[in-house]
């Protein structure tokens, strides 16, 4: 049978969005998919569809025009998902910090898992970041698939197991898990 748990880490799909960068990091992402660096050997494929992708590569300081589109793309991706910020200006705003049409970095709006520094980022660093993102993806999917306990351990008295009063209250569920 097709086992999603096992194969998600083997073939993660990438969604790439340019939120106002200078193209430098975008062509380095293309270069890291090309034969010399070959990111595709990890099973990664570049797709344009947010609804089928697992890793979100964002470049550029978020401009006011691209901000709503960035968040729209993020919300359309299914869980579990990992966000990778590619480039100095994506992490902090970089050289574009405090310009009038720019938000400083994407972590003002969406949670970021991996930060990659550099202007422009080299393909080696992009590969390193994506491999780190794969580990985080595996961790996140394990957390999602962990069963939630709704009962306490049953108490046994004189050889008789007492199953009364073992249901957990709402507040107690998180303590138990």
């Amino acid at each position: 049978m097709f086992d999603l748990k096992k194969y998600r880490k083997k073939s993660p799909w990438i969604l790439h969005y340019n939120a106002g960068s200078c193209n430098g990091c975008d062509i380095e992402i293309l270069a890291s998919l090309s034969p010399k660096y070959d990111l595709e050997r990890f099973g990664v494929i570049n797709t344009g569809n947010p609804k089928q992708s697992d890793i979100f590569l964002v470049t550029g300081p978020v401009t006011y025009r691209s901000r709503e589109r960035l968040i729209e793309l993020y919300t359309q991706m299914p869980e579990p998902k990992v966000v990778v910020a590619v480039g100095s200006c994506t992490c902090t705003g970089g050289v574009f910090r405090d310009m009038y049409n720019v938000e400083d970095g994407i972590d003002r709006y969406i949670p970021v898992d991996v930060y990659i520094a550099g202007c422009a980022v080299s393909p080696e660093l992009i590969i390193d970041g994506v491999v780190k993102a794969l580990d985080i993806l595996e961790k996140k999917s394990k957390e999602m698939e962990k069963p939630l306990k709704l009962f306490k351990e049953a108490i046994s008295e004189n050889g008789v197991v007492n199953r009364r009063n073992v249901a957990l209250k709402v507040g107690e569920v998180h303590e138990e898990n």
């Binding site: 960068s21 300081p61 401009t63 050289v95 574009f96 310009m99």
Partner: peptide, 26 residues
């Protein structure tokens, strides 16, 4: 106009003239 950042304005208010060569490269 999706990637407008305002570099022309920043060149006249934020950076001195000897640094702008590296800013406009971006």
């Amino acid at each position: 106009g999706f990637v407008h950042r305002g570099i022309e304005r920043a060149c006249t208010t934020k950076f001195k003239f000897d640094a702008i060569g590296y800013v406009v490269a971006r």
